Simulated assay, not measured.
Amino acid sequence: MIENRTILIVEDEIRTRQGFLKTLEAWSAGRYRIECAESGQAALLWLEHHPAHLLVTDIRMPGMTGLELIEMQQRHKHCNPVAIVISGYAEFEYAQRAMQLGVVNYLLKPVDKHQLVQAVEQALMIEDSRYRIETMEKLIDPHLLDTKTTRVNYNPLIRDALVFLDEHFHEPITMRQVADRLHLNPSYFSVLFKEQTELTFSEYVSRLRMQRAKELLLHSGLSIAQIAERVGYQTDKYFIKVFKTYEGLSPSKYRSQKK
């Protein structure tokens, strides 16, 4: 489970709020940042300046309900925490609306310590999964995704070329080599490849290499030079130049920013 996450407790009853805070701080043992807000309005103000990864909120509060808080947060903020709602009222419409808003758990008061901790652990696991999925989605090149989803309609020779490139992009491969493999004239292959994929041969290979490089930058401890070699570049200098062209920053800066 990813640490250094922030949990925001929103509860207007001070004794309940302090009880939740004490329970989660003891359970967290410093792994997570635990914050509190006494109302929906105070929570929104806090969220304007801080990210939260999990929202634990009462439903019935003066001024703004917990469900209204979640709805407003989803509508106006880029950061969209998973949420647990707590209520003293076992009313179907609350649970139904909570589900519509994507709330991951619905607890009825009184909430004991074990129940709260269990719900928080489950919610953080869901948040971790969402985070990893979002991270992977950001790594995927939309142009490459298009070729993956539409290649079934491509010329069989181009489909074969794409499969070969997917498996051998880390090698010092040329367009002529692939054309020869398919028994095609290189010029004709170049035109056909661009016509089918809407990318030049060299651009497609570069995008494959950049996508794999981003995965290695985020999920390995390899050096820039090692990654350059792994994705098919003979020098890290040229790899850095190409990476900057596609991502707008150096591989080392990309790694530090994304991590």
Rank of each mutant, 00 (worst) to 15 (best):
A26F: 14
R15Q: 13
E198K: 14
Y106I: 01
D160H: 10
I14N: 07
I9L: 13
G30F: 12
H50K: 15
M210G: 11
M210L: 15
Q118A: 14
Y89N: 04
T23P: 01
M210I: 09
A26K: 11
E127H: 02
F169V: 00
T235M: 03
G40F: 05
S39M: 13
D12M: 06
I86E: 06
S87Y: 01
A228F: 07
E38S: 13
L222H: 12
V178H: 03
H183Q: 10
Y131N: 09
L182D: 12
G30R: 12
A26D: 08
V111M: 02
K241P: 01
P62K: 08
L162S: 00
I70T: 04
V205R: 01
L162Y: 01
P81G: 08
N80A: 08
E38M: 03
H114A: 08
H49K: 14
Q18G: 02
L199S: 07
F20H: 15
M125L: 12
Q234D: 05
G66N: 08
L101H: 06
F164Q: 00
S220W: 03
K148I: 02
N155L: 05
E11C: 03
A29K: 12
R176P: 01
I9P: 07
R209M: 11
G232D: 14
S256D: 14
T235Y: 08
V103M: 05
Q226M: 11
F92G: 00
Q226W: 00
Y188D: 04
Y246D: 09
M1T: 14
L55W: 06
R15K: 09
T200H: 15
L184M: 09
I140K: 11
I158L: 03
T23K: 01
P142I: 10
T6L: 15
G232R: 10
L157F: 05
A228K: 09
D236P: 01
Q257T: 14
L184H: 03
